Simulated scan of single mutants.
Amino acid sequence: MSRTRTHVAHGLIELHTPPFASAPQQARDLALAATMAWGLPLPVDEVILVVGELVTNAVRWARTPIGVRLAMRQGVVRIEVADGDCRAPRMATPYGTDERHRGLIVVAALADRWGCERRRRGKVVWAEFDVATGAAAQSACPVAVDCAMAPRT
């Protein structure tokens, strides 16, 4: 059973769900609700797509309960997807018409930053989108990363 905790007015929304096939859609719906409530001046579709890709990876590879968190702070939207698998995500090379193994490529192409933080029990894969320009966007909290990190080019 999924649980959602929202503090949309405070720039935070969370979802806790089992690794069911329905989890990516639940997370996309949550991301849409949050971005619309926050009135973000950025491509909402990109945020929704990245949330879906990260949750799909957690369902497919981790197969543990999943935590999804969207936060809006200091001009940055941060997406975090936590799972109980300690293995770091890695970008695979898709072959030919294979539709799999493209999730992190999509995340890297759309997000301003993304990476992974190891936790005592699992990991958090995150992505960030800059909402504001100038000082607000530059003051996003620094994040210690010990997994693959790919800035947007």
Rank of each mutant, 00 (worst) to 15 (best):
W61H: 15
I66C: 02
R118E: 12
P18E: 11
P43C: 08
R119T: 15
L32E: 08
Y95T: 15
H101E: 12
A127Y: 03
Q25P: 00
K123C: 12
N57E: 08
A136F: 09
H10V: 00
V76M: 15
R120E: 15
T97F: 10
D29R: 06
A21T: 10
L104N: 07
T17G: 08
V68Q: 02
R69Q: 07
Q26C: 04
D130F: 07
V50H: 06
V8A: 04
V59H: 03
M149G: 11
L12S: 06
Q74D: 15
E80D: 14
H101P: 00
V131Y: 07
T6V: 04
R73P: 02
I13C: 10
P94F: 13
G11M: 00
R121E: 14
T56S: 12
R152K: 15
V50I: 10
G75K: 12
A111W: 03
N57H: 12
L70Y: 07
P142E: 12
G52N: 02
V125C: 11
A71F: 00
V76R: 13
G96C: 07
I105D: 09
E99G: 15
T133W: 01
R121T: 15
T56C: 05
R152P: 00
W114D: 02
P142L: 11
Q26R: 08
V76W: 08
T4C: 00
H7E: 09
F20N: 10
T17Y: 10
R5H: 07
A71E: 13
N57F: 08
R121C: 09
V143I: 14
P94Q: 12
W38P: 03
L15P: 05
A9M: 00
P65W: 09
L104R: 05
L54W: 03
L40G: 10
A58P: 01
H7W: 01
W126V: 02
L12V: 11
W114N: 14
V106K: 12
A9L: 04
D85F: 10
P94I: 09
T6D: 04
V107H: 14
L42W: 01
D85G: 03
A31C: 04
W126Q: 07
R100L: 13
P18I: 01
P151S: 14
C116A: 09
V59F: 04
Y95Q: 15
A92E: 12
D45P: 04
